[in-house]
Simulated assay, not measured.
Amino acid sequence: MSSSALPKLQMRGLLVKYLQVHFVGTLTVALGVVTFCKFDMGEPRKQAYTCATTPDFYRNYDSMKDFEEMRKAGVFQSVK
């Protein structure tokens, strides 16, 4: 019967060590998701809004005029 001594378990600082490792991993994944969303969704939308066919649309956009046209067309039910 050979009995070899088992190594002592780490009891102090175990939670801190666990949290440090997982915090770094979580931060890395979160930054990756944010970067992916910015370049995969944000930039194409920005390009679509500033496309070459209507470059002055938002520069010359009058929201109150658009609202009045929609109100007169009956789009809104609560605004007369």
Rank of each mutant, 00 (worst) to 15 (best):
R71S: 03
V29W: 05
A5S: 02
E43W: 01
F39Y: 14
S78H: 14
T26G: 12
K38W: 06
R12S: 08
A73Y: 07
L15A: 10
F39I: 03
R45T: 01
P7H: 05
L6V: 06
Y58M: 04
A5V: 13
T26I: 03
Q77T: 13
Y49R: 13
V34H: 02
T26P: 00
P55L: 02
E43K: 09
T53E: 15
K46F: 10
L27E: 07
E69T: 04
L6M: 03
T53M: 11
R71H: 06
K17Q: 06
V34C: 07
Q77F: 06
K80R: 06
K65V: 04
A52R: 13
Y49D: 00
K38C: 01
Q47L: 15
L19K: 04
L19C: 02
G25H: 01
A48Q: 13
D66W: 01
V33F: 10
T28N: 02
V29H: 01
K38D: 01
R45W: 11
F76Y: 14
L14F: 11
D62K: 04
S78T: 14
S63A: 14
V75N: 00
C37M: 14
L9Y: 07
Y49K: 11
T26Q: 07
A30P: 03
G25L: 01
T54N: 15
H22L: 08
T26Y: 13
P44F: 08
S63N: 06
L31Y: 05
D66N: 00
D62Q: 07
N60Y: 03
V24D: 10
V29E: 02
K72C: 06
P44I: 05
D56R: 05
S78I: 12
V16G: 12
S4Q: 07
V16D: 13
L9Q: 12
L19W: 03
K17C: 01
C51K: 05
M70Q: 12
M41F: 11
Q77N: 10
A73F: 10
E69R: 09
K65M: 04
L27K: 07
P44T: 02
R71M: 02
T26C: 10
L31W: 06
S63R: 08
Y18G: 01
D40P: 00
T54E: 15
D66T: 02
L31N: 08
Y58N: 04
T26S: 15
E68G: 00
Q10R: 13
V33L: 13
T26K: 06
A52W: 02
K65G: 05
G42T: 10
P7A: 05
R12Q: 14
A52Q: 14
R59Q: 13
L9D: 15
A48D: 08
H22R: 15
T35L: 12
G13D: 08
K65Q: 07
A5C: 03
V24P: 03
D40C: 14
V75T: 11
K38E: 04
G42P: 01
Q77I: 06
D62G: 01
K46D: 09
L31P: 00
P55G: 03
Q47S: 12
E43I: 15
L6T: 09
A73I: 08
F36P: 01
F67Q: 00
M70W: 10
A73K: 14
P55F: 04
K80E: 09
F67N: 02
L15G: 04
